[in-house]
């Protein structure tokens, strides 16, 4: 039984498996991380938000 899977039947097996839908939880993770990435990039890019690590440092010292 264990030996049944081999590259011989890869094509059948691909046809079968491609029909499977992607898990919804995983899709949420996938798109969620892209959205978060856009947010983070906007927040921490000097040319967009003006944030720089040096400015952040000088502000933390002023306190």
């Amino acid at each position: 039984m264990t030996e049944d899977f081999d590259s011989t039947n890869i094509e059948d097996f691909e046809a079968k498996d491609t029909a499977r839908k992607l898990p919804i939880g995983w899709l949420i993770l996938f798109w969620g991380l892209i959205l978060w990435g856009i947010y983070y990039f906007v927040m921490y890019s000097p040319s967009i938000s003006g944030w720089t690590q040096e400015k952040a440092y000088h502000e933390s010292v002023k306190k």
Binding site: Q53, E54, A56, Y57, S60, V61
Partner: peptide, 13 residues
């Protein structure tokens, strides 16, 4: 690194 305690410990970032 430009972090407050790190600059205190080691000097200018």
């Amino acid at each position: 690194r430009p972090l407050r305690t790190e600059v205190m410990r080691y000097g200018e970032y």
